[in-house]
Structure formats: structure tokens, C-alpha cells
């Protein structure tokens, strides 16, 4: 018991440092820079973002230009990624596609993190009846047919790209909330949280300063899983008419179109797939690096 109490005090002593923030973030950043894979991942993502931003300058063909006489040709020095069956340059389509896909990946995930983390943290921390009700609401939202939400959103607000982020964010936060809540429930009985409470630290402060930083690692990992999810789900929303409109492309729609071409024009599938995979791998290594860097306990080493 004394041992535990002692540990609590050491932890308590550390918390003020953590709260200063600046040094923590600096620390974390330094640790991140030491992680080679994470740095490579970060650089690649920056590169990919630049490609997306400068797509109009990098593309050698207008994205809407078809060339029916040409049709689908394999990669060569004119068309780096080949062309699709309408004779459109795949390289152009892929780099334009990264615009919407990166945006969806970032914004929809941000929406899901914001809602999910707060909701889960509150449910887990407050507990009791509130937790019960919040979790039942979550179950209800899980069960509702998402298609009708999207269709009705479109009827009400028309076709709107922002709606896409909202719609995707709105489904993705549900699992995030459940995971965060699970972590918080297990953390809140940890000694230092008890101690903080007994010292009269406010609930909001405990949630923001103690609980959320401690679940951040898991959140980051789930974020790296959410991003591919939303990028591919965007293709389904395109099916309903909400996603990207032809002739504009996205990675999700390129891949789902590519599947049909798997046997005939494999490059229509391979290039979008590989591009997506590289971006996700980079994100994955960056995520792991961030997780390790932000681990509050890591500083002990």
C-alpha cells in the first residue's frame, strides 16, 4: 500500500510538468524525430499533400478529357499510370483523386475524433446512469440505416461536399466513442485520478488534462484505422450520389472502378491501390511514432 501511495506521489509530481504542455509537446516532438519510420511517414504525407495541392500543375492532361479513340493503354512515358477505358490519363485521375480523398480522410476523421473522444470520455468518466443512457444512444445510432440518413441529408441540403465530411464523420465517431469510453472506465479508478479528485480538481479539468492524454495513444491508432475506412466509404457515398461527381475522381471511386478492370486493364486497379497503400503505410508509421512519443509513461525511460 505504501509502495502504491509512493508511486502515486511521484506521478502526482509529474502531472504539473505535463500540464505545462509546452515541454511535453516539445519532448514528444523530439522523440518523434528520433523515430526514423515516423519521420519517413511524415515526409511522405507532406509530399502527398503537396502533390494534391499542386495537382493542376503536375497533371499533363485535363482531368475531364476523354480520348475514346485511344481507350485503355498500359503505362508508358506519356501516361505514367496508363489510361482508363475512356482514354483518360490515370496519373491525372490519381493525383486529382488524392485531393478529395485526403480531405475526406482528414476532415471526416477530425469530426469523428472530436465527437467520439469527448462523448466517450464523458460517458466513461461520469459513469452510472449517464453512461448507461449515452451508451444506449450509441447503440441506437449504430443500428439506424445509414443510407436513409444520407438520402435525406441530400434531399434537405442538396449535393454539397461539406455534407460528405459530416456524413462520414457522423458514422465513424461511434466506434471511437466506445473505445475511448472503455479506456476511460479502466483509467478512472487508477490511483492518480482518484488522488486528483480528492484534491478537488474539477471534473472537466480531470477529463481534459488527465484522461484524454492517457487515451491519446489508443485514439491515434484508431485514427489510423479510421482514415482508410472513410476514404473507401466515400466511394459508397458516391454511389448514393453524395460523394465526388464524375469526371472528378477519388481514390475510393478509382479503386472500385478498377476492380471491374482487374483482369482486362490491371493498371486501372494497381496504381490507385498502391497510391492509397503508400499513403496509409506512411500514416500508419507516423501514427505509431506519435503514439510512442505521446505516451505519458515513456518519459520515465
Amino acid at each position: 500500500m505504501t509502495e502504491a501511495a509512493l508511486k502515486t506521489t511521484t506521478l502526482m509530481n509529474q502531472t504539473p510538468e505535463i500540464e505545462k504542455g509546452r515541454s511535453l509537446w516539445e519532448d514528444a516532438f523530439n522523440r518523434l524525430l528520433k523515430n526514423k519510420m515516423a519521420v519517413i511517414g511524415l515526409c511522405y504525407l507532406i509530399f502527398q499533400t503537396l502533390v494534391a495541392i499542386f495537382a493542376p500543375w503536375l497533371a499533363r492532361f485535363p482531368y475531364e478529357e476523354t480520348n475514346l479513340a485511344l481507350g485503355a493503354v498500359p503505362p508508358d512515358w506519356v501516361h505514367f499510370f496508363g489510361t482508363d477505358d475512356l482514354g483518360r490519363d490515370m496519373f491525372t485521375r490519381v493525383i486529382y483523386g488524392s485531393r478529395i480523398s485526403l480531405m475526406v480522410g482528414i476532415l471526416a476523421t477530425a469530426v469523428s475524433v472530436l465527437i467520439g473522444v469527448l462523448y466517450g470520455a464523458v460517458a466513461g468518466y461520469v459513469g452510472g446512469r449517464t453512461d448507461d443512457i449515452l451508451m444506449r444512444i450509441l447503440e441506437i445510432l449504430y443500428s439506424l440505416p445509414f443510407i436513409f440518413f444520407v438520402i435525406i441529408l441530400m434531399v434537405l441540403f442538396g449535393r454539397n461536399i461539406y455534407l460528405l465530411f459530416v456524413a462520414l464523420g457522423l458514422i465513424e465517431w461511434l466506434t471511437m466513442a466506445r473505445i475511448v469510453r472503455g479506456q476511460v472506465v479502466s483509467l478512472k479508478k487508477v490511483e492518480y485520478i482518484d488522488a486528483a479528485r480528492s484534491m478537488g480538481v474539477g471534473h472537466v479539468k480531470i477529463i481534459l488534462d488527465h484522461l484524454i492524454p492517457n487515451v491519446l495513444g489508443t485514439v491515434i491508432i484508431y485514427v489510423t484505422l479510421t482514415v482508410p475506412g472513410v476514404i473507401l466509404e466515400e466511394a459508397f457515398l458516391s454511389f448514393l450520389g453524395l460523394g465526388v461527381q464524375e469526371p472528378m475522381s477519388s481514390w475510393g471511386t478509382l479503386i472500385s472502378d478498377g476492380v471491374a478492370a482487374m483482369q482486362t486493364y490491371p493498371w486501372m486497379l494497381i496504381f490507385p491501390c498502391v497510391t492509397l497503400m503508400l499513403a496509409l503505410l506512411a500514416l500508419n508509421f507516423l501514427g505509431d511514432g506519435l503514439r510512442d512519443a505521446l505516451d505519458p509513461r515513456a518519459s520515465k525511460d
Binding site: 475531364e64 476523354t66 475512356l86 438520402i151 454511389f239 448514393l240 461527381q245 464524375e246 469526371p247 471491374a260
Partner: peptide
């Protein structure tokens, strides 16, 4: 929403753009 309808619409959009210089939008619905 359908592969074939999509391709034809994309092609026609481009034909009108090339031949008449007019911009046409596309939209699909379930």
C-alpha cells in the same frame, strides 16, 4: 448510379465540351 451510364455521361459531357464549347455537369442518384 451505374458503370455504363456513368461512362456514357462522361463521354457525352466531353463531346459537348469539345464540339460546342459548353460545360455540362453530371450527377448521379440512387
Amino acid at each position: 448510379t451505374n458503370e455504363g451510364h456513368k461512362k456514357i455521361a462522361v463521354a457525352i459531357q466531353d463531346m459537348w465540351k469539345k464540339n460546342l464549347g459548353i460545360d455540362v455537369g453530371l450527377f448521379n442518384q440512387e
